[in-house]
Design a protein around this nucleic acid. Structure first.
Ligand SMILES: [Mn+2]
Ligand SMILES: [Mn+2]
Ligand SMILES: [Mn+2]
Ligand SMILES: [Mn+2]
Lengths: 217, 217
DNA sequence: TATAATATTTAGGTTTACCTAAATGTATTT
DNA sequence: AAATACATTTAGGTAAACCTAAATATTATA
């Protein structure tokens, strides 16, 4: 299996396992990678034989230590390139993901480490997601959803839980970017929408759905 | 045909056609890409159908306008990434080619143009090769081989005609890098080796073979 | 101009990564 | 516990990009 395809399977399994501790299901992997379930069965059997995942027929799969390392290193490359695209080339945070999806498969350790150095060893990517170090260790963020912040308690926006272009662009329009100070002024009883202030200034209402996808500290 | 493979065929044909104006031969393309001649025949037929090359059975192939554009754009990406790797990440000129071979296939026009801008619109790559602009136009260098420079005429080293690691590393060892001033002090009758001075200082002898691969202006 | 040498193509295979659709296994609901 | 729904696997195919080896063209040489 080409490293391109292999890395994408392992990354998908990693992502799904973060949510579902049991492991990743065939159908979910298929959905994540835009392929059909039969294709996934074939692929995960091979990854199992390679010792990269734990595969048992009809069971959810999990990553082995080796598989997890490849997944995490791919995430590291992805996020470092995203930092490069934003910090050095001036792209916006909603434009970078497709490029990083390709760049993450360029495998030269020396390139990754020099890039990391060039960028000043960033700890988080432009979406606030942590960048694992070269040994695969993540620095822990401990952020919480905006929907669980107490009233009138100022916090800093540190991340997001939805990475769609439309969500990112909407946040831009509202001036909600990483680092801004946010405070919840009111929780609307009717629909759980929240009134927020941004950097002290009088703010606006956010739907529960939006607030739920904003992370703060 | 994947853009990765397609770009490599077109690039190889471009390179071979630069030398052999008739076009590129099946066997030469095969050698260039490390594949077997039968594989090339199959590939060039498809590229012909796509309108990227002019293919006639048993004849050398040439690039169409469309094919040439893809080849040149691939070369542009390759050389821009090489500048990045040297200027920004601090790699040496003998380390960068394999990485650029991968990076050149990342196809996002906006990425290429922003990279170009970030690098200050370089005209030449770290090996002295010209970087075509986004319309595929090369700036002309007009350099000549060190073997055809008149005695005691100081010139500037601007390029090389051999890109092997061993050649590059040898030049490094001799202090022969792009931009140095070189003068031919003597041409040895016996073996056509040349005595050169470098940046005014007393120099050393270079075999004809080495001198022949050094370009000056 | 035959013959030999060399280049190119063709024929028949393989592997990878995908597909559809049928078969089978697992889970949920009556 | 059957029946039904849903998930997963299997079976059989395809297309891309490679291979080897045989067949055929072209080119060079005797
Ligand atoms: Mn991303
Ligand atoms: Mn990100
Ligand atoms: Mn190169
Ligand atoms: Mn170069």
């Amino acid at each position: 299996m080409s490293s391109y395809v292999e890395e994408n399977y392992l990354k998908a399994i990693y992502k799904l396992t973060e949510r579902n501790k049991d492991g990743a299901y065939t159908n979910d992997i298929a959905y994540e990678l835009n392929v059909k379930p039969g294709t996934v069965t074939e692929a995960i059997k091979k990854l199992g034989e390679k010792g990269l995942i734990n595969y048992e027929k009809y069971k959810a799969v999990t990553l082995t230590k080796a598989g997890k390392m490849i997944a995490v290193k791919t995430i590291r490359k992805h996020r470092l390139w995203e930092v490069f695209l934003v910090e050095k080339l001036g792209f916006k945070w909603d434009e970078i993901h497709p490029m990083a999806e390709e760049l993450e498969h360029i495998n030269f350790e020396e390139l990754t480490e020099r890039l990391d150095n060039f960028l000043g060893h960033p700890e988080f990517d432009p979406h606030g997601d942590p960048i694992p170090n070269k040994d695969g260790v993540f620095s822990n963020h401990k952020s919480v959803k905006l929907t669980s912040i107490a009233l009138n308690t100022p916090v800093v926006m540190t991340g997001i839980e939805n990475h769609t272009t439309s969500f990112l662009q909407h946040l831009d329009k509202l001036g909600l970017k990483l680092g801004v100070q946010v405070a919840v002024k009111e929780i609307v009883d009717f629909d759980k929408s929240v009134l927020v202030s941004v950097n002290g200034k009088k703010g606006f209402y956010l739907s529960h759905d939006i607030a739920h996808n904003i992370l703060c500290k």
